[in-house]
Write a protein that binds this DNA or RNA. Structure first.
Lengths: 222, 222, 222, 222
DNA sequence: CATGAATGAGACTTCATTCAT
DNA sequence: CATGAATGAAGTCTCATTCAT
């Protein structure tokens, strides 16, 4: 189906399909790169295909050889990005013998990833972007193509939390909801970075999220 | 009462145009109402002025008598809404003798307000919308018009947190950053409500935010 | 509804609506005229709205103030033309005391009308054009907007034939089918005119149709 | 047998390219078949070469190895079809000892042929299609390629009529014009069949044309 | 001979904005 | 103050045609 569905694992050998469609895929990726750049610069509606074509160095008509639509192009970019994110997350949580350490690793890695891809993720912040485009296209297509990818990330995080709860380390809250909260906090860090970008360091912010999310604002009685 | 720029914060002197516009401001409000409705239904670019005019019951040209632009109209709606929010926040924090209780009140009231205005706030989620429109207009205009209003809210919250810290109740974190985090968590609640809207109650979610934000995920040793 | 539905009678006083929408209707008619000209010059798909706008002396966007679509514009032109035709037919058959004379009058008048509007009617020859556009739009819209107008003409002719049959003047054939045949023969005359346009006279062709349709090819025994 | 330009008329020498193309002509025919199918389904402009290539099972570029143009392809299909028709007509009129019987045979055979090929002939109804496409290509090319084929059919019919006139069986009308009329009536039958396709039989319609064309609408005095 | 890939040209449609009345 | 009418500019998408391989 979707030709860039992530492998969700450690698989590195994507040289398997190098024979038949190798340079067709190359062009497709060039376009995806260009689109990612343009969609990162502008709102979905402000991004124009002319610019994507320009950046990709192809004709506008060529875009339609590889993607059905503008929205299809956008969703393809989003899919690719979310797959990358999921891989990061999976790698972070591969070893969850220590739930607290895992959560900390998760926060750092996710924050790093978001920070690296901040421009693009402004658009599809959390699950919200399915609302943003609702009037534009068949809502189902969006829902079916990206929601699973988003939930994949949430579910992985929720699993770690559940594990911690079973170990008696974490409080009894709905794990999935807590996972959402965590993602949200990480996103907020990006905002903080944007607002005062001169001197702040990424790790500082990671610590803030850790502190709030793990310990809360209230003073702990020793 | 303030006309469309709230006086609830630092800025006080916006009574300058009180004289001339006077009665025409009623029509201005009608248009704002219509615009709010339309902008709540659709994305900024999907919302069309034709519909705003229709809903307001005026001609499209009339919109330009009261607002410079489409973006001006949008920002005016946002301003008005944020003013309302600031008033809510101020009321919530009027008495902050007990910081913990105040934070709880703040969470509940903000959540209620967001919930009541969910449709509109999906568009200007957090402080992010200044990024979304950056290509469209002079970024400075947006920054200058809405950022102060957003920070007003953040600052009020931060004050409460600072107070709590001085009282030895709250941990030592950057109060402003913590305030951002709180807002973010409240927004996330809206998402949770949207994702499973059948049975969930608002207050349940408020409790979740309280728990996470105040106590954190880690088990407290008794 | 459709604002140029024919009055189907002798009504000449269309000054009734001269107050409110008088110059709006004027512009609409200008566009219709331009469209008729362009659609007469070219196939539906070859006719481009740019040219219609040019000929009408308005902007392309203006077309969309008065017509929903390209197809709507085309159908509006067709409706107007068919209404004119129906009026001609009705006038021709107003007095049908003598069926033979009426048929002859009908042939002459219809032929004259087609001849005057030959360019446009090339496209919607007979009932056939509903097939030509079938893939383009909601077939129902076409069917509902123009079929009645086409059948109106056929029915009137069929009535005359039925009358002649009742008087014992005409043979026993299906009147409606015969009416179709007559229309077809009249159209064929246009072809003949086109093929050898130098010296032929309209009335000669009318006589041919009369002869064939009324008397047939076979010699009559005296 | 002739390859794609029929020899059934005046033109005889089209065997010039018989040598080189030889076996490639089988693919050429495959393409023609595909094109006929697609052009029968849709309007000339709605038919797209992509689909022709698909149906033919060849690449779109291959079409251009066998045909100069889209219009060339279309005209080639039309030529082939008209050649078939001409053969039918010639067979029908091979024996014209009895003009009346011959005309009847002609009507039946032509009607059958049109009925079998109704889909395609909707497009090039009568001789009219040379008008439909005039803006598209050099009008002369169309005129020169298909008009002779059309006239071939007309001429054959006209010969039969002339013969009948010489035998004193038919009235004195222009034979060629009468032949046109006849063709037109046959086409009209197809329309009638389309309009009420449930119960009608082809032969019934043939009788109607016979009656009208041969005897006319007027009652014959015995 | 065959084709996958690419594209230029152009069509329809939309919408924020202006202006004469 | 209000608006009906008009439009320039722009955007998405299509398709016949070409060309290197």
């Amino acid at each position: 189906m979707c030709q860039n569905v992530c492998d969700s694992g450690e698989s590195t050998d994507n040289i398997k399909e190098w024979d038949r469609k190798h340079d067709s895929s190359v062009k497709r990726d060039i376009i995806l790169d260009a689109a990612e750049q343009v969609f990162s610069d502008k709102d979905y509606h402000e991004a124009v295909l002319d610019e994507v074509a320009d950046v990709a160095g192809v004709s506008k008509a060529t875009l339609y050889l590889y993607f059905k639509n503008k929205i299809d192009l956008f969703l393809s970019v989003a899919e690719r990005k979310l797959c990358e994110l999921n891989e990061v997350i999976l790698k972070s949580t591969a070893d969850c013998s220590d739930p607290v350490a895992t959560i900390k690793r998760l926060i750092t890695d996710e924050l790093t990833f978001f920070s690296d891809n901040a421009a693009f993720f402004k658009v599809i912040h959390d699950q919200r972007f399915n609302l943003q485009l609702r009037a534009q296209v068949n809502e189902d297509e969006i829902r079916e193509r990206v929601m699973p990818l988003m939930f994949s990330k949430i579910n992985v995080t929720a699993e770690v939390i559940k594990l911690g709860q079973e170990n008696g380390v974490f409080q009894a809250v709905n794990p999935k909801e807590a996972a959402f909260m965590l993602t949200s906090l990480v996103h907020t860090c990006l905002l903080l970075l944007n607002l005062a970008p001169e001197d702040v360091v990424l790790t500082d912010k990671a610590e803030l999220v850790e502190k709030i999310f793990l310990e809360g604002l209230l003073m702990r009685k020793t």
